[in-house]
Amino acid sequence: MAEFSTEPISEDTLLLRFGSSLAPAINAQVHAVARAIRKANLPGVLDVAPAYATLLLRVDPLAWLDDGSGHPLERIAAAIATAIPGTGPGHEQATPASRNDSAHFVEIPVCYGGENGPDLDAVAKHTGLSCDDVIARHAAAEYHVAMLGFAPGFPYLLGLDPALQAPRRADPRTRVPAGSVAIGGAQTGIYPRELPGGWHLIGRTPRVLFDPAREPPALLAPGNRVRFRAIDADEFARLTKLRA
């Protein structure tokens, strides 16, 4: 299924390492193993948190400490090996395409440019494309959620058209509005609430990315597939009004 090494981080945390790059195929393996570990429902495993090429497992050491039968992290690692048959060296790699096809799909409406995307012009200039081309390419790609981080519900999306890559802004903003859709290097992301940020803002979505009173609180989960749909200012206003 997947190859990874297992590193203890602290007394209560294990890191499974699948690689060291942003490669989507590696990230797909991370999500596949994360799903298998969740499904196995191992006692004392509190967090199963995917990143690009690593999976962090935080355990409750108290659930494993007191029976005196060995190192808790080694026992968790052994339990994972049992729970995921075919892990370890020499086994066939996960096929990211088939994995992605089965993942939950979310469409994100975006009002590109203007006051909602103040850096659209800068991205167009940097990439040598017209603003319309930037929008068309950004909305044409299928992305997947590599991980959530930075702030609750902030998705790091892989799958950006390489022609749209743009380095971070030299002067980060202290306040990026909630819902801003942004490009940072080879990635695109969405700010769930007003936050400081250095990515280029190309548009804004009326969807609420994070709401602690909602179940689940985050609109997107690791491994989800995402596509952006361009909307005009009227639809942005209408959808914003609808959610209130």
Binding site: A34, L46, D47, V48, A49, P50, L56, R58, D60, L148, G149, F150, A151, P152, G153, F154, P216, P217, A218, A221, P222
Partner: peptide, 11 residues
């Protein structure tokens, strides 16, 4: 709040 790190939520 353990168990929510995968949603970007710290403990």
């Amino acid at each position: 709040r353990p168990g929510l790190a995968h949603l970007g939520i710290g403990r």
